[in-house]
Design a protein around this nucleic acid. Structure first.
Lengths: 214, 214
DNA sequence: AAGTGTATCAAACGCGTGTTTGAAAGTAAA
DNA sequence: TTTACTTTCAAACACGCGTTTGATACACTT
């Protein structure tokens, strides 16, 4: 039965290699910019392998996506205070977004697709982004209530706070090519990412608190 | 001589039509997503017109860009207070970014190119984005000094404040496809854009002030 | 009216893309 | 070993892209 297992995993190994290569290339070049040929080359597979194993480039993207790491971020630290949960979430989210060594390229793939709709975007929005927005919305609401300003903050403003937080986070990934040209010594090492996250937390908490007290 | 003038402007008219169509298509589909054929179709010109008049698709983009409107935003209201100048800038910037009826599609074109380097990106960064960052950096510095907190705020934190502001602004354009799916009744009319700008101003001023006082 | 340079046009070119094909190699069961 | 099925492979296909070409129409000069 050793041959059976080996044969089975032989096919599954190329599948896995294709998925790994796809995640890498998609996160670096985006879905449009990535080519099936480059993915196959990196996976040391034949050019027809993608269509054989996944049907199409779209199918490969669909299987390459994995929303679990992002969802895990939201479930962690449930017993901490809202502010602490926001702080920890932003730190880990930024590490996913910016740290090339982070094993979860999912966020980097998704971030690239935000502006350029893909057949997979509907699924991404439904299964990853909508829950993320809801999670942050609840967190912002808790912090608003906690801040104890008498001001009643409406749903629209609460939503805009979520957008402000996500906008700050995504900016560093989205505008990376520009920031590199502006600031040649730029490099996202672990220390720098944590400092960025800390800035976003402080900046955002002040913004939220201000809204509740105005 | 009437015929001469007509003949001369006949060519210049197609040039102008091509530029208009190019700005429209580039801002809607991005440089990569835009096709020469669609631009020519919208301009009611022949498929070879772009290469005849501008040499290449790249050349068309280079001529379609115009940094004056963005620069004008920075020079206006020079005698107002730093906070007011920030408020007015963000409002007009958001109107450029989000209002499809705004005659200046430049910002919308540039925003699409941020993430996807184009041969023109170096020029865009040098002539438009770098001055913009410097402008906002000075404004943030003035507001920090004005806030009178004894805390000395370093250049890195000042820069991150600029990133926080721009990140919030660009998020609405960058993530528009996602926000539409999340929130189906979303529409950027004038009133909504102004409300968004106002939120970003309040949120950001609180964040900046917090940094200076911490 | 003939000549000259410019602008437009339909058609095609060269290239890269995702995908398909049919044969060859490999693997498991009979 | 033979048979049936799965996986790999080089090659080609169909398509869309930016671009080029050579003919044609046009406006202006001589």
């Amino acid at each position: 039965m050793r041959e059976t297992a080996e044969a089975k995993t032989a096919s599954e190994l190329t599948r896995a290699r294709l998925l790994d290569a796809a995640r890498e290339v998609f996160s670096q070049r985006g879905f449009q910019g990535a080519t099936v040929r480059e993915i196959c080359r990196r996976a040391e597979a034949n050019g027809a392998a993608v269509n054989y194993h996944f049907g199409s480039k779209d199918g490969l993207l669909a299987e390459a996506l994995n929303f679990a790491p992002l969802a895990a971020l939201q479930k962690a630290n449930a017993n901490e205070s809202p502010r602490t949960r926001l702080r920890l979430f932003i730190r880990d989210f930024m590490l996913m977004l910016l740290d090339e060594n982070n094993p979860s390229s999912q966020c980097r793939i998704m971030a690239r697709e935000l502006a350029d709709p893909t057949p997979a975007l509907d699924k991404i929005v439904r299964e990853a982004i909508a829950p993320l927005h809801e999670f942050l919305g609840l967190l912002v609401r808790e912090i608003l209530d906690d801040s104890g300003g008498g001001k009643k903050v409406g749903a629209a403003e609460q939503r805009r706070c979520v957008y402000s937080i996500l906008g700050q986070c995504l900016f560093y990934r989205h505008s990376h090519p520009v920031l590199q040209r502006l600031h040649h010594k730029l490099r996202y090492d672990h220390e720098e990412i944590v400092a960025i996250a800390e800035h976003i937390v402080e900046f955002s908490l002040a913004g939220i608190k201000h809204l509740s007290k105005k």
